[in-house]
Nucleic acid binder design. Structure first.
Lengths: 182, 182
DNA sequence: CCACAATACGGAGACACTCTCCGTTTAGCA
DNA sequence: TGCTAAACGGAGAGTGTCTCCGTATTGTGG
């Protein structure tokens, strides 16, 4: 990639991260272009669809997922506490900005999505937690990773769109956890 | 209301019901106006916000909710079967058109929403099912109606946005049911 | 160091949607 | 039938998406 192109690409992603956080995932792309000091044509050449921009914005976020997974695996307490703690982390991870939980969750299990690699990171993280709990014999047999991602993602989506706080979310996560544990 | 106003109102609702079903809840309101043979001004005078139109579209739907509730209460089988059967009905009820599960679920518990009366119908229906199961001593103590609506609504939202079919939804509903039952 | 592809830029503008304002029309009553 | 309150409807302003193409920049080979 040419040096000026790289510069613009990086600048757009940086600005998009900021604007998505401020205004949510529905923010105007033309405004992002303007704030980044480029024309709309430049933005759309680098990111043909909004989701491609989201994918780029989530680049460093992958590391956060890994850190959170490690922390969850190292969590003190019983299986239920581990699972609940992870669910809260998971919700926080996919709720970085308004509209993100829905976008991410609906992309899970869809290999054609521009953010499919990010979804794989998430499902892999869930796999690790689930494997650990399964090794303890704590989970029901039919538990499936993608289903878990969707269940918790659904709660995150509802919380995002209905402006619910953590106290309203926790008991819902507990229901799902209890439905998964033996 | 003047007779011509009533005529236009009814016609708009009728067309909206059709268009929402065809194109989802995000359909163009100007197109609905055009198809109904009225100017956009007329549509917006009757329905200042999109949600007001949704509210009107859902008028007869209330009866369906009541019928479905009766059927669920009369369901043969144990408590788990009753609950699962109701959840499937519930998902179907709020998934009449694309985008509806999210809109309805995020309005639950929000008295300022234009569709708040419709949400009350839904929560009342859930109350009846929950009361019945609670009378059997089948539910955990901390179960709360609004939480149940949100949990199942979250699944419906994810299914709607990710184009999941009933076979993918059922096991997720089962997890929630198991988390609610003793 | 320069010329010249190849690459990238950017903004004008087409298109779509939302929503309002206000001049015109119509219903229904006296 | 005539009058007034109610309702209509469409032009158009505002906003956002996305493309096309003339212009500008980069970096390489001579």
């Amino acid at each position: 990639m040419r040096a000026d192109a790289q510069r613009n690409y990086d600048r757009i992603v940086e600005v998009a991260r900021e604007v998505f956080r401020e205004q949510g995932y529905d923010a105007s792309l033309d405004e992002i272009a303007k704030r980044a000091g480029v024309g709309p044509g430049t933005l759309y050449r680098h990111f043909p669809a909004r989701e491609n921009l989201l994918d780029a914005v989530l680049k460093f976020w992958v590391d956060k997922v890994d850190v959170a997974t490690e922390k969850a695996l190292a969590h003190e307490g019983g299986d239920r506490a581990v699972l609940l703690n992870w669910f809260e982390e998971y919700v926080a991870l996919i709720s970085q900005h308004k509209g993100a939980p829905a976008k991410i969750t609906s992309a899970i299990g869809n290999p054609d999505s521009p953010i499919t690699t990010k979804c794989q990171v998430l499902t892999a993280a869930n796999d690790r937690i689930i494997d650990r709990l399964r090794a303890d014999g704590a989970l029901r047999d039919e538990v499936d990773t993608i289903q878990v991602c969707r269940l918790v993602g659904g709660i995150a989506t509802v919380a995002d769109q209905g402006d619910l706080d953590a106290d309203a979310v926790r008991p819902m996560l507990a229901v799902v956890a209890d439905g998964l544990l033996r």
